[in-house]
């Protein structure tokens, strides 16, 4: 047993604090918006130029001028503000965004993050991820613990080109939650039905107590 995508998103949502401005990445991080705990009010930033991102529109109400950073149609809220890309990244780089929740291809025990390209194979680009990890207060990564072939993606050193160096604070995977601490990773909790031994076995990175 392990967490599925929605359970990972729900666990990542527990990281949110009342009043925070937060940026959610593409993929599982986008699902975090569905699990914001009761009594917590957060404002979602979309780096293409919006604060106060609302849910997906009802069918027939899509607006080509209103999309999120994943190019999905979305809606606005009463508190929404729009701005241009330079201002959007000014608030990111300027440390105004409390937390970013991002996907990853690899993460390392020193907090290095790789999530933008596989040389010779897959070239997507970093989009806003390099700016986010350099600028926001706290970086939480949500990812599968291992590849389809069972190889750990929680590593001693990243093998792929980095998105940022020493930038990750916390890792939420299908197997559990780990923090980046001096000397390696510390286990915060195991996913439901996952033992600490299983989590350790799936982790290449150094685990410290």
């Amino acid at each position: 047993m392990a967490w599925d995508r929605n359970q990972m998103a729900a666990r990542a949502a527990q990281e949110l604090q009342d009043g925070w401005y937060v940026n959610l990445g593409i993929g599982i991080p986008t699902l975090v918006a569905n699990y914001i705990p009761d009594g917590i009010e957060v404002t979602l930033q979309s780096e293409n130029g919006m604060l106060g991102m609302g849910p997906f529109p009802f069918e027939g109400e899509e607006d080509a001028d209103l999309i999120n950073a994943g190019k999905q149609t979305i809606t606005e809220l009463p508190k929404t503000a729009y701005f241009d890309s330079a201002q959007s990244f000014a608030m990111i780089r300027g440390g105004k965004i409390a937390m970013a929740i991002l996907g990853a291809m690899e993460v390392a025990e020193n907090g290095d993050l790789a999530n933008w390209m596989i040389p010779g194979k897959l070239v997507k680009g970093m989009g806003g991820a390099m700016d986010l990890v350099a600028g926001v207060g706290r970086v939480v990564v949500v990812m599968d613990h291992t590849s389809k072939h069972g190889e750990s993606k929680v590593l001693k050193h990243c093998t792929l080109p980095l998105t940022g160096q020493g930038v990750v604070n916390r890792i939420v995977t299908n197997l559990g939650v780990l923090d980046v601490v001096p000397g390696g990773l510390r286990i915060v909790e195991c996913a439901e039905g996952v033992t600490e031994a299983e989590l350790r076995a799936a982790t290449e990175a150094t685990i410290v107590d």
Binding site: E47, A86, F89, G127, M130, D131
Partner: peptide, 17 residues
Amino acid sequence: LSGELELEFNPQGTLAE
């Protein structure tokens, strides 16, 4: 990937700035 087009990757905020 075939080298026909040059690509300079810029982080999104760096490009905007």
